[in-house]
Computed example of a mutant assay.
Amino acid sequence: MIDKKSFPGQETAESTGFLLWQVTSIWQRNVAAVLRGHELTQVQFALLASLMWLEDKEEWVTQAMLARHAKLDEMMTSQVLRSLEGRKLLERHPHPHDTRAKHLVLTSSGREKAKAALPDVERVDLEYFSILADSRPNFNQSLQDLIDKGGCHG
């Protein structure tokens, strides 16, 4: 017989990472369900919504800036942007000051698609995380602290 004590994290409640993975998986399923009606994947939505936000803050938005903002791999970001460009939801132009960079611009249909999906995604967030009630700001701050800490590879 296997001794459960020899496997740290055997109990789900003892493994923060596994709990976070489970919560994320459930939340992603819920978000994916509402985004299907908008013909978007989660990554596509995250990039469109992030680009919409960044366009309001920055004069020029590059692929690298967008990938950093969304915490996504630059290669995957480039591939998804190519798909969104093919759907005429955004345009990639040469950057006026950096020949290596692409300047990203949402098209009017891309902006409308992001704006249409945003309330549905926010509703999923409010419903799913409503269990946190008054502790939600503290939970969000803890998540932000983890994001700010960044990766740690042993």
Score class of each variant (00 low, 15 high):
residue 1 M to N: 09
residue 1 M to Q: 07
residue 1 M to D: 06
residue 1 M to C: 11
residue 2 I to V: 06
residue 2 I to K: 11
residue 3 D to H: 04
residue 3 D to E: 06
residue 3 D to P: 03
residue 3 D to Q: 05
residue 4 K to N: 08
residue 4 K to W: 05
residue 4 K to L: 11
residue 5 K to P: 01
residue 6 S to H: 07
residue 7 F to V: 09
residue 7 F to E: 01
residue 7 F to G: 02
residue 8 P to G: 02
residue 9 G to A: 07
residue 10 Q to M: 13
residue 10 Q to L: 13
residue 10 Q to F: 14
residue 10 Q to S: 12
residue 11 E to N: 07
residue 11 E to I: 09
residue 12 T to L: 13
residue 12 T to F: 15
residue 12 T to D: 08
residue 13 A to M: 04
residue 13 A to L: 05
residue 14 E to A: 07
residue 14 E to Q: 08
residue 15 S to E: 02
residue 15 S to N: 09
residue 17 G to N: 02
residue 17 G to I: 02
residue 19 L to E: 06
residue 19 L to P: 01
residue 19 L to R: 07
residue 20 L to S: 06
residue 20 L to Q: 12
residue 20 L to H: 15
residue 21 W to L: 12
residue 21 W to G: 07
residue 22 Q to I: 10
residue 24 T to C: 07
residue 24 T to Q: 09
residue 25 S to Q: 06
residue 26 I to C: 10
residue 26 I to V: 15
residue 27 W to R: 07
residue 27 W to Q: 03
residue 27 W to G: 01
residue 28 Q to G: 13
residue 29 R to K: 14
residue 29 R to Y: 13
residue 30 N to D: 08
residue 30 N to Y: 14
residue 30 N to M: 13
residue 30 N to H: 14
residue 32 A to I: 10
residue 33 A to P: 07
residue 33 A to H: 15
residue 34 V to Y: 00
residue 34 V to A: 03
residue 35 L to V: 06
residue 36 R to S: 14
residue 36 R to P: 04
residue 36 R to T: 15
residue 37 G to C: 09
residue 38 H to L: 07
residue 39 E to Y: 14
residue 39 E to Q: 15
residue 39 E to S: 15
residue 40 L to G: 00
residue 41 T to M: 05
residue 42 Q to C: 13
residue 43 V to Q: 09
residue 44 Q to S: 12
residue 46 A to K: 03
residue 46 A to D: 08
residue 47 L to T: 02
residue 47 L to F: 05
residue 48 L to T: 00
residue 48 L to H: 00
residue 49 A to G: 10
residue 50 S to H: 08
residue 50 S to A: 15
residue 51 L to I: 07
residue 51 L to G: 00
residue 52 M to P: 03
residue 52 M to T: 12
residue 52 M to S: 15
residue 54 L to A: 06
residue 54 L to M: 09
residue 56 D to H: 14
residue 57 K to I: 10
residue 58 E to C: 14
residue 59 E to Y: 15
residue 59 E to T: 10
residue 60 W to G: 04
residue 60 W to A: 09
residue 61 V to I: 05
